[in-house]
């Protein structure tokens, strides 16, 4: 059943190894590093959306919790980055439990609004608690990561490091899906009543998967902080949470691979668009980052209306249809 997914990991890894050699430009590699942070968050979020049928509109806050834990503990208290990451995870888990337990006990989509409120509060605090978080000025001089004494101090090194983390995260996620627990989650999504009558503690599973998705984002946030060496509240607002949901939905909610594809695609999309606009410059068309919102909104709306399974499933169906068409043609030829 799930063998394809594990083969997918191998193919995906090969593509990841080859890519830097093809693009060979630090700027573009840097963009793919950013794509990896989104990818990691989106894998977690897709477990929640696709397998527990719940939306979180506050995942950027978990990114923020990871990033600020790492930044504060390493810069102000001199902790080891790895220890700081662990503390970030613990904080994220506690927050996820505080938000998740009351709102996931209820049927329906209370989690969406609870996380939206939570996300806004965290963002407000990062801006307002100037003494603690540095406020809008943020925190700088966050140390670079070291693994056994080797500093990960270039874009290419970080690219390798972070994508290994993503692949490990993907591996964990796939293991969860193809397990008793993953089956239980899909069952909850299919029919909560039938799942309950099969002995599945529905709210507990939903809470656990929400906690796991928060861990993914917290880790992504910590690694983000160590990559850019400087953080401010900017990237941890509601808009980024909504963007993460967009990535998962565009790629395809019901498959983890959809989240992988959606997050990479939408992370590099602004770059592609601005490159195109440079090419067509002089024709009166100019692309500005201001248009990002408009474009993300249009893509999400178009996908939800016409391809609710997302790009991943859409492409898969397209292939199947082509295959059918092709086999029919050849058989009629014979």
């Amino acid at each position: 059943m799930g063998t394809k997914d594990y083969l997918g990991i191998i193919w995906f890894s090969i593509i990841l190894v080859v890519t830097p050699f093809i693009i060979g430009n630090d700027y573009y590699i840097g963009i793919l590093v950013f794509a990896a942070f989104n990818c990691l968050s989106c894998i977690g979020l897709s477990l929640l959306m696709g397998y527990a049928g719940q939306i979180s509109l506050g995942h950027a806050a978990f990114l923020g919790i990871g990033a600020y834990s790492s930044a504060l503990l390493t810069v102000k208290m001199g902790w080891s980055p790895w220890l700081a990451i662990v503390l970030g995870i613990i904080l994220a888990v506690i927050m996820a439990l505080v938000i998740g337990i009351p709102s996931l006990r209820l049927k329906g989509h209370y989690l969406a609004m609870a996380t939206l409120g939570f996300g806004s509060i965290i963002h407000i605090v990062t801006v307002a608690a100037v003494d603690f978080t540095g406020g809008p000025a943020g925190i700088s001089q966050i140390p670079t990561l070291n693994i056994f004494g080797f500093p990960i101090n270039s874009d290419v090194k970080y690219y390798a490091f972070i994508w290994i983390i993503v692949v490990i995260g993907l591996f964990f996620a796939l293991n969860i899906i193809h397990s008793r627990s993953g089956r239980a989650l899909r069952a909850i999504h299919g029919s909560e009543d039938a799942a309950g009558s099969s002995g599945i503690h529905t709210s507990r599973y939903k809470i656990r998967i929400f906690v796991i998705s928060a861990i993914y984002s917290s880790i992504a946030g910590s690694f983000y902080a160590h990559y850019v060496n400087y953080i401010d509240p900017g990237p941890f607002g509601i808009m980024h949470s909504v963007l993460l949901v967009t990535m998962v939905a565009v790629g395809g909610m019901h498959k983890v691979w959809g989240a992988v594809i959606g997050s990479i695609l939408l992370s590099v999309l602004p770059e592609i668009l601005s490159t195109i606009s440079e090419v067509v410059e002089g024709y009166g068309i100019e692309y500005k980052p201001d248009y990002d919102t408009l474009i993300y909104g249009s893509i999400l709306l178009a996908i939800m209306l016409f391809l609710p399974g997302g790009i991943f499933q859409g492409v898969g169906d397209g292939f199947k249809r082509l295959k059918k068409l092709f086999t029919r043609k050849t058989s009629s030829a014979v």
Binding site: F171, A173, L174, N175, I176, S179, S181, G182, R208
Partner: peptide, 9 residues
Amino acid sequence: LFVSSLLPY
């Protein structure tokens, strides 16, 4: 859930 995440099915 946590044990399952470590090993493929």
